[in-house]
Amino acid sequence: MTPLQHYLALSVALFAIGAWGVMARRSIIVVVMSLELMLNAANIALVAFSNYSPGTPGRGEVFVFFVLAVAAAEVAIGLAIGIAMYRLRERLDVDELDELKG
């Protein structure tokens, strides 16, 4: 059986790609998408651990459900903000939205 480390490696890679996407891309939508990636990476790790660890089975997977729910909520809100922002500024590049400058 493929050992736990492989899944973890996969999850880390996916997480890194997601992070890269969040940091590098300018459009809010891509940022949200990359965020989803990171969440999925987390899910993979969760499921991997729950399967390979002793104790009552499925403990990790339950948690994935919650992650799913939250991710969904998060995407909704993120995109809503993006659309509202778009309506205001006609542009969606994140680096131009800096009204909160100090």
């Binding site: 800096d98 009204e99 100090g102």
Partner: peptide
């Protein structure tokens, strides 16, 4: 002051 650049990224 510049540290608070306002850029989310």
């Amino acid at each position: 002051r510049p540290i608070q650049s306002g850029k989310v990224q």
